[in-house]
Design a protein around this nucleic acid. Structure first.
Lengths: 239, 239
DNA sequence: GCAAATTTGTCCGTATGTATC
DNA sequence: AGATACATACGGACAAATTTG
């Protein structure tokens, strides 16, 4: 008689809601510790299995973070779930997987072009110098095979939207960048980007921003994303 | 002797990857059935607990969909995980929860203003009529308490970005709309929107779009989002 | 309408891996 | 090194939901 009366809703979902409520009512912050599994079992009236499955769900959403042998903590609330979900969508779509990529790039470009005026006007001298340094890094590590190039590219676009003071745009921008770089290598007939062309495009973006030239800034952004869009279209037509 | 030697990676994560790989290699589509839990256990060499926890993770990401007493199927790959994650972030943030909301609204406005030219030029007559019909619905159901008003508002913004042909923008736009409407009622000192003002703003948007007036379209969008941003700022300063 | 079959949901007991002190 | 606390994993049993004959 291991009594179990879910009545209306799944017990697992009640545990999920219970843990959420606990975090909210206790005013916990990311990194704060949560009760142990046995403690959650007693507090929420559920078995280890139900509690564990609920914790795994919250872990997948980065609402909770589990450290083996250490404990359970409030998560960082990142957009990691979005990356996972979109990445799989890009890998799965059999017919229009290139459309998924094209949509992704469109949104990234929209973020930077649509906020061009605010970006150019709010970029500090220090940030402009940092952008220049990242382009220099791309030049130096371009030949080698290390992660230096892609890391600099990622940091460049992160820094570009940083002055907006909009955390969501920054995190979405990076999430889409991650999905793109993960999915792209898995697509058939997808040609690699020309590094020299990429470096020049990034340099033009910084130069225009430093000159306060919004029109030139948007033009440079267009010349940065045009080759990306072109390669997607080419790979698509290659079928 | 219930042997368990995770050796390198967590078994649960290997099961997650195994199920993903199965879906990809079998070229499954959303809605297609997956093997039963016992079958997955044997195929992946894991106990039922591990398989179930893995399935729950994939379910949270909408990569898999579980129906009690029926079976497990490939999920719809929606952005439901993003909604869950962002909603909780909005509810949790103790100090700058209003900043989360402001960022959200900024992105929604960016989608519509940044794509204004394409929206206005690509909206069909049928779509414009549908937008008018939705505004009419908002007028009629404005007084009553039903869901009619908010549903029409949601459908309006969904239809507005539909002609872009960018699924991602449409889904993100709706995800942010959902998060906003879920979180807003939980914020202290948050005043409700004035319905008459909202209806007028939406009508102006449709009218400008039908006239092909891009400038007027963007102006109408600005007048739609300005009150939202103002209410957020007011509630924030009220602390 | 009922009963059986199938599948997921929940519980319990036990043993092992991991991290901290 | 040992002890402790915690999450990880296993296996079996029963409950609940759904479909089917």
């Amino acid at each position: 008689m291991s009594g179990t009366k879910p009545g209306r809703q799944l017990l697992r979902q009640e545990v999920v809601d219970g843990i959420k409520r606990y975090i909210l009512e206790e005013r916990l912050r990311p990194g704060d510790p949560l009760p142990t599994e046995p403690a959650l079992c007693e507090a929420l009236g559920a078995s280890r299995s139900s509690v564990r499955e609920a914790v795994k769900i919250l872990d997948a959403l980065d609402i909770v973070e589990v450290r083996h042998g250490h404990g359970t903590y409030v998560g960082r609330l990142s957009l990691s779930a979005l990356v996972e979900s979109l990445t799989f969508r890009g890998l799965l779509s059999p017919d229009d997987d290139f459309q998924v990529m094209a949509d992704l790039v469109d949104v990234r470009e929209l973020f930077e072009r649509g906020m061009a005026d605010r970006i150019v006007s709010q970029l500090s001298t220090e940030q402009l110098d940092a952008l220049d340094a990242l382009v220099a890094t791309m030049r130096e590590t371009g030949a080698r095979e290390g992660h230096g190039f892609v890391d600099a590219d990622r940091a460049f676009h992160a820094l570009l939207v940083a002055p907006l003071g909009n955390e969501l745009i920054g995190q979405l921008s990076m999430a889409f960048w991650d999905v793109y770089t993960i999915v792209a290598p898995h697509l058939d007939g997808f040609t690699q980007a020309d590094e020299t062309e990429t470096i020049t495009a990034h340099q033009n973006i910084v130069d225009a921003a430093r000159a306060g030239d919004i029109t030139g800034f948007m033009k440079a952004l267009g010349e940065h994303y045009a080759p990306v869009r072109r390669r997607i279209a080419e790979a698509r037509s290659r079928r």
